[in-house]
């Protein structure tokens, strides 16, 4: 199991456990977490699963995927160097303990 902590814009922390291979987006959706919409189901057609990867996890999550940066341009909240589409972060044992922060809005 891979533990992921989602920190909502108001500071609320939600800890979820997923399987390797799940995405940070799909784990949130499967648990009904507010704050991630995931409208296109992970097809990289929208930016409604925007998250900010915690500073401590930048290296482990790696670089943005091909095309991800372009889709992030349509995110409604500020895009920073920490911004990722959470559908493009695939859980692995190496990401156990991952912390992501969520924007105020996704749509």
């Amino acid at each position: 199991m891979v533990k992921v902590t989602y920190v909502a814009h108001d500071g609320t922390r939600t800890e979820l456990e997923g399987d390797p291979g799940d995405s940070v987006m799909s784990l949130a959706i499967a648990n009904g977490l507010d704050g991630i919409v995931g409208e296109c189901g992970g097809s990289m057609m929208c930016a409604t699963c925007h998250c900010y990867v915690d500073d401590d996890w930048q290296a482990a999550t790696g670089a943005r995927m091909d095309g991800e940066e372009d889709m992030l341009e349509s995110a409604v909240c500020e895009v920073t160097g920490r911004s990722r589409l959470s559908c493009q972060i695939t859980l692995s044992e190496a990401l156990d303990g991952l912390v992501v922060h969520l924007p105020e809005e996704q749509v």
């Binding site: 990289m44 095309g67 991800e68 372009d70 889709m71 341009e73 349509s74």
Partner: peptide, 8 residues
């Protein structure tokens, strides 16, 4: 085709 930049 395979061009998210132009699409967006």
């Amino acid at each position: 085709i395979n061009n998210a930049k132009i699409h967006m």
